[in-house]
Design a protein around this nucleic acid. Structure first.
Lengths: 199, 199
DNA sequence: GTCTATACGCCGATAGAC
DNA sequence: GTCTATCGGCGTATAGAC
C-alpha cells in the first residue's frame, strides 16, 4: 500500500532506496567518507537535489536509518521474548538473529554495532539506553533473578556476553575470521553464555 | 636531549604538543569532527600554519599518533612476556596495563581500541595484524599449545578474551559503567580468562 | 519530483613576510 | 618557526525552471 517494490523497472524512483544505498555506503566507507554525491550516484539520479525531497540533510538519513534498525531489532526481540520462557533460550535466539544478520545483511550489523553513532548524531542516546539493548539488559537481569545466570553486576554480565558476540562479529565482518558468521555461531554462543551462566 | 619538557613557560612551543592535543580531540569528538582549527586552538597558536611545520597533513597526525601508541604498547607487551613465564600471568598483566591506561590515559584507550582507524587511514593494516595485537594472539596460541588454554581456534580465543576486555572498557569510558576501570579489573579478568582457560 | 544552476561556508593547505 | 594573507576545492544546501 505504501510502496510498490515489485517493479524494478525504469524510474519509479527513490525513497528508502536512499536509505538502502546510504546504509551500504556508510557501512563500507563510513559516514564522513560518504558524500551526498556518493549517495546520489549509488541511487542513480543526476544531482543531489532529489535527496532533499526525502531528507532534510545528511544526518537525517543516518538518523532515520538508525531508528529503523533499532525499531526492527526491538520488535524482533519482543517476539523472541514472547516465544521463549527460559532466559537461555531468549539469549540464544538473540544471538541467532545477530549472526544471521551478519551473514545476510552485514551492512546492518556493521552500522548497528560498529558505527560510533554519537560521532555522527551527537544528540542520540547512548546505545545502551536504546530500546533493543535495554531489552537485552532486562533479559539478563531476569536471568540473574531466576538463578539461570550467576549473581553479579547485571551490567557486567551484559558486557561479557555482548563483548564476546560483538567482537567475534567484528572479526567476521572484517574478514579476519575467514568463515561465515553462521559457522562460528554455536561455539560463540557457548562461550558467551558460559561467561555468565551459573555453574 | 631531544626536548626540554621542564619549562612550561611562555612559548617554547609545539611538537608532540600537537600530538597530545590532537589525541585528546580525536578521542573526544572524533577525527572528522576535529578541524585543524580546533587543534590550533587547543595548542595555543594563532594559525594552523604552525602545524604544518611538524606534520604534512591532518592524516599524518593521526598516523603518527597511532604508530606511537602501537609502538609503546608493543614494547610494554614485550616486557611483560619477558618477565612472566605463564601465559595466564602474561595475559593478566596485559589486562592490567589496559585497565590502568583506561583510568590514567583514557584518550589513549579510546583512540587505540575504539577509533575505526581504517576509516581515517585507509592504508593502515588491520588492527589484528599490528605488532601488539599480533603478540597477544601469539601469547594465546602459546597458551593453547602448553595446555593452559583449552584447545580451540586461537582466533576465537583471542576474540572472546579481547571482546570481554574491550567491551567492558568501552562501557567504562562512555560512563555507562559508573566506576573506575580499576574497580572492575579483577572480575573482568576472571571472566575473560575463564572464557578460554582449560578447566 | 527531477533537473540546472548556483551559492556559500568551511576546511585543508601554501606562499611568503617577519 | 610563527605570523598574515590567501587560495582552491569540496561538500552541503537552496532556488527555481521543467
Amino acid at each position: 500500500m505504501d510502496k510498490e517494490k515489485s517493479s524494478t523497472e525504469k524510474k519509479p524512483l527513490t525513497q528508502d532506496e536512499v536509505l538502502l544505498a546510504s546504509l551500504k555506503l556508510f557501512a563500507e566507507k563510513g559516514f564522513f567518507n560518504t558524500s551526498l554525491t556518493d549517495i546520489k550516484d549509488a541511487v542513480g539520479i543526476k544531482t543531489t537535489s532529489g535527496i532533499y525531497q526525502h531528507f532534510k540533510n545528511k544526518q537525517a538519513i543516518a538518523d532515520t536509518l538508525y531508528g529503523n534498525i533499532l525499531d526492527s531489532l526491538s520488535i524482533s526481540i519482543d517476539d523472541i521474548r514472547r516465544r521463549n520462557r527460559k532466559v537461555s533460550d531468549q539469549l540464544r535466539e538473540i544471538v541467532d538473529l545477530l549472526f544471521k544478520l551478519a551473514d545476510d545483511a552485514p551492512e546492518v550489523i556493521q552500522f548497528l554495532l560498529f558505527v560510533n553513532i554519537r560521532e555522527i548524531l551527537p544528540d542520540q542516546k547512548p546505545v545502551i539506553e536504546t530500546a533493543p539493548f535495554n531489552k537485552i539488559r532486562r533479559v539478563i537481569q531476569n536471568g540473574i533473578k531466576s538463578g539461570e545466570i550467576r549473581a553479579m553486576d547485571s551490567l557486567l554480565a551484559y558486557s561479557y556476553f555482548l563483548g564476546i558476540i560483538k567482537h567475534t562479529l567484528s572479526l567476521v565482518l572484517s574478514g579476519d575470521l575467514p568463515k561465515t558468521a553462521d559457522s562460528y555461531q554455536s561455539q560463540v554462543w557457548l562461550a558467551a553464555w558460559g561467561s555468565i551462566v551459573k555453574k
